[in-house]
């Protein structure tokens, strides 16, 4: 049990299907920049960024992985020892949500037991109405907010919808993870209420284990 110290290093891994915007999220967070037609990540990329939350400073060591299915077998190399993970999907691509579900299971089974996972539905800009209003464009969204929330609730994940393009909610993801990490370490297993600026934190029923699927008779 360690005391929260300034500039804690946190190893964070990004997982998710190809072209959902993993690298773009990182680029937005690290350089506050956005690129169309970004070259696909080969293997993995590594970036760091410091993030100040309250009185603490967290130094994120971000491992941005390649999304294509066949690169999945490389992933264990990268999520090894990770304290946090962001599982990204594209809210306009249902298949990417299924893939996200798989990644969450894989992490629960294989990664560090106390890993903090955030589920992120990216490309919110695509469903946003042009006039910046509250409404959404019809028919573009393919994964509902509820679906994301439900998965997050089931598996004990943080949940956000973001847009790397407009930078909507991107920093909140990293702040949310940062908030959760020391508390998880210091408060151990006590349930926590951690609503950060109206973000939904569904961590209360956490610690579900992946081994319960496919149970025996």
């Amino acid at each position: 049990m360690s005391y929260p110290t300034p500039a804690t290093s946190v190893k964070l891994v990004l997982l998710g299907e190809a072209a959902v915007g993993k690298s773009s999220l990182v680029l937005r967070f690290v350089s506050n920049d956005f690129q169309e037609n970004k070259e696909p990540t080969i293997g993995a990329a590594f970036l760091t960024q410091k993030c100040t939350i309250g009185e603490r400073t967290i130094k994120y060591e971000i491992w941005d992985t390649a999304g294509q299915e066949r690169f999945a077998s490389l992933a264990p190399m990268y999520y090894r020892n990770a304290q946090a993970a962001i599982v990204v999907y594209d809210i306009t691509k249902p298949a990417s949500f299924i893939k996200a579900r798989h990644w969450v299971k894989e992490l629960h089974e294989q990664a560090a037991k106390d890993i903090t996972i955030a589920l992120v539905g990216n490309k919110y800009d695509l469903v946003q109405d042009d006039d910046e209003g509250q409404g959404e464009r019809e028919g573009v969204r393919k994964v509902s907010v509820e679906e994301g929330q439900n998965l997050a609730a089931e598996e004990g994940l943080l949940f956000y919808e973001t847009s790397a393009k407009t930078s909507y909610n991107v920093n909140d993801v990293f702040i949310g993870i940062g908030n959760k990490i020391p508390e998880a370490a210091s408060l151990a297993s006590s349930p926590e209420q951690n609503n950060n600026e109206g973000r939904i934190d569904l961590s209360t029923n956490a610690s579900s284990n992946g081994n319960r699927n496919l149970c025996s008779c």
Binding site: A72, S73, H102, E106, E109, Q110, N213, L214, S216, C217
Partner: peptide, 26 residues
Amino acid sequence: QNISSFVKRTELRNLPRTTNISQETL
């Protein structure tokens, strides 16, 4: 071996529920 255990893990995880077959048997 590493790959095969990864592939196996992934494949087993994505299987439908089989109530009459235990994890080990699977």
